[in-house]
Design a protein around this nucleic acid. Structure first.
Length: 636
DNA sequence: GTAGGGTTAG
């Protein structure tokens, strides 16, 4: 049929390297289909065109088998118009021809055209359904994808592992636990729960819906694992706030003989960010270098963020400056802007943004969010409002709730409380509890107890169980010495059974994390710490420290109040750190809530009296205490 | 043909 010899055909597609398995193929048509496939894998279009003309000369270009494969190659290599032309001219299209074209359009982002082809198909098979369902879910039309899954079922097609994988991804995208659990039922009935892809997708679905336990058990029940299954588990743990568990699984994964890939690294680096365990972060950074992955943009952005959140801004800057690979990736620029902002260096953040504009890089919504955040955290109200304007007018970006909340923060921190409230009420999006809480926190900073009560009401209308708001409100009232109001807040908390989130601080010593819970005596060295704390506080008092007992919520006498204040988790952590580190060694402490006023004052005294640099990361930012003052300028 | 990830307000 074909004049061209086998060897020259193979040479054409494999750059002269004749492969054993290819030269064993006898049928020319079979060989051509194999060669086309290899061209797609190597993403080279030229040999495809060559093969096309050869088949035309040989007169076999119109056979169904060959033309389907040619069309597939064109479609996969982005030559959709050519593929469609062939499709239109095909005398006898079959289901496969349709499916190929659908897949091609989906891969090239033309979902609409793919759906059109699907709708016009007279006959479909499971693969046709799978292709459109996967496409819909890929482009986040999850609802539509799931609807199609139901249609597929009513038309008598049985879902296979491809269908189930896509559908589970759709449920994950929608965070729809109910639908996801129903699909779990299908999975069990079809006996595909042990399939690697289905299992990982299902575990991912559960974890995205917050069902950590179910996700873990799906993974554990799988008889065979691969890197993706491990990654699903590790990422699921971090995303559900279980960073310690993620790092444990990471170690187990390595012990089981799996090599972490870029996605594993991203997840574990982000765990170190959450825990602010610098030592482990550095260790993983070394592993990344050894694995030769320092040019992967997602890893670099995680590293920049990790170092910043561990209190080492210099290292963030170093990773950014020495970045290999994509120098113009806007995510890296956004990361470094956020890193500066996290440390209260708004002017530096703005400089980076200006450089970004000069270099013609496209800032996106995240860039602006980081920028607004940086401005509000160092009192650059005017600048921040300018950027908000720039974002809308010049960059044509539609602000999201997060951006609006930043603006509220900008206005509120600067003391323009009424303007902030007006701004919230005039927003085109409905404010959420976070937006209101931002304003409430500004009320506390500026000691406006009346407004605080009003704003707290708004929040409790949306979420009556929001403990942080009760605490903020009560603290604001306490600052204004409105004791009756304080007890009113506490009463309603009791009535509604709202529990205050306990204050936690932790400190990393020799790669081990020591956790301190407010008022908790369970640390093995509690007695020693307690004794040391007492001495420390007395020493601070000699230098002028006065405990701010107004902040303690409970009805107690002065001595008890002081005792309570002394056992705030960050004070216990700093005592433990002072006891266990050499003189002059900087101390890094992390806290889950915002640092309280009294601890903030005490830390300043500690840094002065003990001549130590203390870095405290609280729920919203960093505080660098040195020589009796704090980098936040008492503004947090 | 299929799965898992990064920067981001409080």
């Amino acid at each position: 049929m074909l004049e061209t010899s086998k060897e020259s055909l193979i040479a054409l597609c494999t750059k002269g390297q004749i492969k054993q398995d290819l030269s064993r193929i006898w049928s020319h048509t079979h060989l051509i289909s194999k060669l086309l496939k290899s061209c797609v894998d190597r993403r080279s279009l030229f040999p495809v065109q060559q093969l096309h003309s050869i088949t035309i000369t040989a007169g076999c270009s119109k056979t169904k088998f060959i033309s389907n494969h040619l069309m597939n190659a064109y479609a996969k290599l982005g030559q959709l118009r050519t593929a469609q032309n062939m499709f239109d001219k095909m005398p006898d299209r079959n289901v496969m021809s349709h499916n190929i074209l659908i897949g091609g359009f989906i891969q090239n982002g033309e979902l609409g055209t793919a759906i059109e082809i699907f709708n016009k198909m007279g006959q479909r098979n499971s693969a046709s359904w799978n292709a459109v369902i996967a496409g819909m879910i890929k482009f986040e039309f999850n609802d539509e994808g799931l609807r199609l899954f139901a249609n597929m079922h009513t038309e008598g097609f049985l879902p296979d592992v491809y269908t189930l994988g896509s559908v589970l991804r759709g449920c994950a995208g929608l965070k729809d636990l109910i639908k996801g659990t129903q699909v779990h039922g299908y999975v069990m009935r079809s006996g595909s729960e042990f399939d690697l892809v289905v299992g990982s997708s299902m575990a991912h679905m559960y974890m995205r819906c917050g069902s950590l336990r179910e996700g873990e058990s799906v993974i554990q029940l799988m008889p065979v694992h691969n890197v993706v299954a491990w990654n699903t588990l590790i990422a699921g743990l971090v995303q559900n706030g279980c960073a310690t568990g993620a790092l444990d699984q990471y170690n187990l994964m390595k012990m089981a003989g799996f090599r972490p890939d870029k996605i594993t690294f991203v997840s574990v680096i982000s765990s170190c960010s959450d825990l602010a365990t610098l030592g482990q972060g550095q260790q993983i950074h070394t592993e990344v270098i050894k694995a030769g992955a320092m040019s992967v943009v997602s890893i670099l952005s995680s590293l920049i963020s990790m170092y910043s959140r561990c209190g080492c801004l210099n290292d963030s800057v170093r990773v950014f400056d020495e970045r290999e690979g994509a120098k113009d990736d806007h995510v890296l620029w956004s990361s470094i802007i956020a890193a500066y902002g996290f440390h209260g260096k708004g002017h530096e953040a703005i400089k980076i943004f200006n450089r970004m504009e000069r270099e013609g890089l496209q800032a996106n919504d995240v860039t602006f969010l980081s920028l607004l955040y940086s401005c509000s955290h160092c009192g650059l109200e005017e600048k921040g409002l300018e950027f908000f304007d720039l974002m809308i007018k010049k960059y044509k970006l539609e602000p999201q709730i997060k951006h609006y909340t930043c603006v509220v923060d900008l206005l509120g921190r600067a003391g323009h409380l009424e303007e902030a409230e007006r701004f919230i009420r005039s927003m085109p999006i409905k404010p959420d509890t976070i937006t209101w809480k931002t304003l409430l926190s500004a009320c506390k900073t500026h000691k406006n107890a009346d407004m605080a009560s009003k704003i707290a009401e708004e929040i409790l209308k949306i979420d009556p169980q929001d403990s942080a708001s009760y605490v903020l409100l009560s603290n604001t009232q306490a600052t204004a010495k409105r004791w009756q109001d304080v007890s009113k807040v506490r009463k309603s908390m009791r009535e509604r059974m709202v529990k205050k989130e306990p204050g936690l601080s932790w400190f990393e010593l020799k790669n081990q994390v020591h956790l301190f819970v407010m008022g908790d005596k369970s640390h093995p060295e509690f007695n020693k710490i307690d004794l040391y704390l007492k001495e420390l506080m007395d020493e601070l008092k000699l230098h002028g420290y006065v405990p701010d007992i107004g902040l303690v919520m409970h009805d107690m006498d002065v001595e008890e109040k002081e005792y309570n204040l002394v056992h705030h988790s960050e004070k216990m952590a700093v005592a433990f750190a002072l006891m266990n580190t050499p003189e002059g060694f900087p101390i890094r402490i992390m806290k889950n809530l915002r640092v309280c006023d009294d601890c903030h004052v005490a830390m300043k005294y500690v840094s002065l009296v003990k001549n130590r640099e203390i870095v405290v990361r609280d729920a919203s930012r960093f505080h660098h205490f040195r020589g009796g003052s704090c980098s936040c300028g008492d503004y947090w």
